[in-house]
């Protein structure tokens, strides 16, 4: 499908994923400022009685005043991702964006420099994975805040509880996937191309066959033989018709994939 012949497609493919990577970083950055988890409760009349949203930077937030006791009773444990970690994450994002925008691995002849950036990309991806996995396990599930979405009716309290992941978490998941292909590609390129020291003859032969133009000598010889046999002896000094001559050239162009 995407063979070596389609360099243009592969080139655009890479540029597309580069754009996707930057978009992923932007989404990941935005996700830090949106709510990650929402915990609400409504009474039988549908009035909101408990409302808690988890923000990575600000922790658990509510719209109710501090004196609304029912809301305070259901306040989740105040633990959240350390502030420093979020700052580090943003720092890594900035380095990644810088490396992608200002240094193109393809045009660089210093792969060692690219390797450093590759580790940064991998760290960024790992942190994104950490947020996706650890936040629900460590900060939510352990506090009986169910994942990803659950509605629970408490008949004693006559209250319905709504547990749900929110925009921030979804954005982070999308961002992870947007960042994944380019980060891994970048990492493998920098490590693989420094370590690659053996290309077998078989691989080379395959590539050579792919790039070379096909030439069927037997067919060409047969054509000429037929021409010789068909033409009478006295007409051997042939003036080739324009159409026939052009056909040969057109075949050549086709084999070169110019036409």
């Amino acid at each position: 499908m995407y063979t070596i012949k389609n360099n243009g497609i592969v080139m655009n493919l890479k540029s597309g994923f580069k754009g996707l990577f930057i978009l992923g970083i932007c989404l990941s950055f935005l996700s830090l400022f949106f709510e990650w988890y929402s915990f609400q409760a409504r009474d039988l009349e549908g009035n909101l009685v408990v409302f808690w949203n988890l923000y990575l930077f600000m922790g658990w937030n509510t719209i109710f005043p501090p004196n609304s006791w029912f809301n305070v009773v259901f306040m989740p444990n105040g633990d959240t991702v350390p502030f420093v970690m979020n700052v580090i994450y943003i720092g890594i994002m900035l380095i990644s964006v810088y490396s992608v925008i200002f240094s193109d691995l393809e045009y660089s002849d210093n792969l060692e420099k690219g390797k450093k950036y590759a580790y940064v990309h991998i760290l960024l991806l790992s942190l994104s994975g950490f947020y996706i996995c650890i936040v629900p396990i460590y900060y939510l599930v352990s506090q009986e805040l169910f994942f990803p979405y659950l509605v629970y009716m408490d008949f004693e309290l006559e209250v319905t509880f709504y547990y749900s992941i929110a925009v921030g978490y979804i954005l982070q998941c999308v961002a992870f996937n947007a960042m994944f292909p380019y980060s891994i590609y970048y990492y493998f390129t920098t490590t693989h191309f420094n370590n690659q020291n053996n290309t077998s003859e078989t691989v080379l032969q395959t590539i050579i066959t792919q790039v070379q133009e096909s030439l069927d000598f037997d067919k060409l010889i047969a054509e000429e033989k037929v021409k010789l046999q068909l033409e009478p002896e006295e007409k051997k000094t042939i003036v080739h018709q324009e159409e026939e001559v052009n056909q040969i050239y057109n075949q050549f162009l086709e084999t070169r994939r110019v036409k």
Binding site: M11, L13, K14, F17, F180, P181, Y182
Partner: peptide, 8 residues
């Protein structure tokens, strides 16, 4: 470079 689709 073609492997990038696999990574996705």
């Amino acid at each position: 470079k073609e492997n990038i689709l696999y990574y996705l």
